[in-house]
Amino acid sequence: MKSNQQRQSIVPSAFRTRYENFHYSPAVRVGDIVWVSGQVGTDSEGRVGIDMTEQARFAFDALKCVLEQAGATLADVVELNTFHTQMRQEIQAFVAVKDEYFPSDYPAWTAVGVTELARAEFRIEIRAVAVVGSGGR
């Protein structure tokens, strides 16, 4: 296997505790493709956002952090999958925040309503796939 095809776990320092406690990589990069694990609505200290808007911003900020550690940017995201506990009530608030992070050249996106996430107070989880360098920004 070529060296650029080696599997690389991406673990930013802010994610080290979660990596050690829950045994998962925040992202995995193989070649130019980065798969980012689900990001939830907490800030860097683990505080849960008070509403959908704040949780979405926290999750997108975490996504951006993980991508940067992997050598990618939000512009390189080709696919988003989002999981919502209150999708019908909060989808417009989520879309408004998503559009702040993806104002053009939108990635493919699938939104799924779910009954629960890892913690009862979580309203959103965002996972992504990026192709490093594909965004051209």
Rank of each mutant, 00 (worst) to 15 (best):
M1A: 12
N4R: 12
Q5D: 13
Q6G: 04
Q6E: 13
Q6N: 13
Q8W: 00
V11I: 12
S13G: 05
A14C: 12
F15K: 01
R16V: 11
R16C: 07
R18T: 07
N21P: 00
N21V: 06
N21R: 14
F22A: 12
Y24K: 01
P26I: 07
P26L: 10
R29A: 06
G31K: 06
D32E: 11
G38K: 04
G38R: 03
V40E: 15
G41T: 06
T42I: 15
T42L: 08
D43W: 04
S44D: 12
R47Y: 09
R47F: 07
I50S: 15
D51H: 07
E54G: 02
Q55V: 08
Q55W: 07
Q55P: 02
A56V: 06
R57T: 06
A59W: 03
F60H: 06
F60Y: 09
F60W: 04
D61W: 04
A62F: 02
A62T: 01
L63M: 02
K64F: 02
K64R: 12
C65M: 15
L67E: 01
Q69V: 03
Q69H: 08
A70M: 01
A75C: 05
D76V: 04
D76N: 05
V77L: 08
V77N: 04
V78K: 09
V78A: 08
V78M: 13
N81T: 15
H84S: 03
T85F: 04
Q86N: 15
R88G: 09
D99Y: 07
F102D: 03
P103Y: 12
P103N: 08
P103R: 10
D105Q: 15
P107L: 11
P107S: 13
T110P: 00
G113A: 15
V114G: 01
E116G: 07
L117I: 08
A118M: 11
F122P: 06
I124R: 01
I124C: 00
I124M: 02
I124H: 01
E125Y: 01
S134V: 09
